[in-house]
Amino acid sequence: MTARRGGGPTMQDVGRLAQVSAMTVSRVLKDDPGVSEATRERVFAAVDRLGYRRNQTARSLRLGGSGMIGLVVTNLANPFYSRLALGVQEVATEYGFRMLLSNSDEQADREPGLIDGLIDHQVEGLIVVPSGSRQQHLAAAMRHVPVVLAARPPAGLETDCVLVEDFHGARGATACLLAEGHTRIAFLGNPPALYTGAERLRGFWAAHEEAGIEPENALIRQGLVDAATAEAATLDLLRGSAGPTALFCTNNRISQGAIRALYKTGTTLPLAGFDDFDLSDVLGLPLTLVSYDADEIGRQAARLLLDRLGLQDGDPPAPRRVTVPTRILRHGIA
């Protein structure tokens, strides 16, 4: 069975045509005896009319299972992970599943316990944003349930994942600053051990190489974990004798810390970075932001997981990698 990738009818489409909820469609496909015969007939008529793949979907619901999938994110306070979770929940609900959510708080030593706890609660599959590069505990979990990774790739694992165009997004945003004549661009990044931090630095560096400009190592700050550390790093750069003429930030929290530092020092510099954020278009600052659909990362991860759950026979497909595209937004730039 292949999960819907955006082209075919959904369970919600069937429900609208049959004038029932998506949950009722799910109950019909699971042969729930509590559904009336008249409702059952309407649902199956809608399934046939729309060409909805009812047999495969019914298999994907894994009759007799718990009907739950687990999601582990690294920082629920970050709006990115909240949106990702909403995307997972949207698809899980569409297919009659419930979602159990855990937050590792970027603590790699905490993640194995969260994974074990979700498996103990009999989740049928897991979607995980890994908090580090050591993923042996995920290999152990895969002996019990399918696992899909989101936002960060597998390390030594053979499993599906959903990623963002980190390299291309960073290269594109940096290129915008370089095209405006900036040759002293500061890089404010999260820990280099994280895939996103490494890929976004690689994109930043590639844009410089393509422009024939050497980035200044003295303007590169890595290992920033929140707005406070980003603010401190930015203040340090601004107080230097040869400060930057523009900033590149690798995520929304780092951008917010950098903006606070600019405000405190009364400085206006162009800033480029990953993640759009609320009120970015009304700050009056020259901003170049790499935007993408965080909900879609969750939706794609959930579809990959439900696809795995629907495989009852035959050889499973090779691990798949889905990439969510980025786009450049520009605010406060004439």
Rank of each mutant, 00 (worst) to 15 (best):
I115E: 01
F167V: 06
A186K: 06
R110I: 00
L149A: 02
Q136I: 07
M142G: 03
R134H: 13
Y195H: 12
G181S: 07
M142E: 07
V162C: 11
V148D: 09
F97T: 05
I185H: 09
A92D: 12
I127C: 08
A179C: 04
D120Q: 15
L126A: 07
A173P: 00
P153N: 11
A141K: 12
F97L: 14
F187G: 08
H144N: 13
G96Y: 11
F167W: 12
V162I: 09
Q107Y: 05
E106S: 06
R98D: 13
H144P: 07
V162M: 08
H168W: 10
I115T: 07
S133H: 08
G125Y: 13
V147P: 01
E94N: 14
E94C: 11
A141T: 07
D109K: 13
E180V: 03
S104Q: 06
A108P: 01
T183L: 06
S131I: 01
E90Y: 14
E90C: 12
G96H: 10
A170G: 03
G181R: 11
G132S: 08
T93R: 14
V123Y: 05
S102C: 13
P130E: 04
L178A: 09
G169D: 02
N103W: 10
P130M: 04
A140W: 13
F97S: 09
V164Q: 02
A151N: 04
A150D: 06
P154V: 04
N190T: 11
I127M: 13
R134I: 02
V128Y: 00
P112V: 10
E94P: 08
D166C: 05
E90F: 15
L188F: 13
I119A: 15
E106Y: 09
A170D: 10
G189R: 08
D166G: 02
V164L: 09
S133L: 05
I185Y: 08
V145Q: 15
G172N: 04
E90H: 15
S133K: 05
M99G: 03
T159Y: 01
V128R: 03
Q135D: 07
H137D: 07
E158P: 00
V129W: 00
L149R: 00
G156C: 10
S104K: 01
E124F: 12
Q122L: 15
V91E: 11
L101W: 14
L100V: 03
A175V: 00
A139F: 05
F97H: 10
E165V: 04
A150V: 09
S133G: 07
A170Q: 10
V128W: 03
A150P: 01
V145I: 14
P154S: 12
A151E: 06
F187R: 09
Q135L: 11
L118Y: 07
I115D: 03
E180C: 05
R171T: 04
T93M: 15
P130C: 03
L188N: 10
A155C: 10
D120S: 15
L163V: 06
L149C: 04
I127Y: 12
H121Y: 14
A155N: 10
Q122I: 02
Y95K: 12
A155I: 05
E158I: 01
H182F: 13
H121T: 03
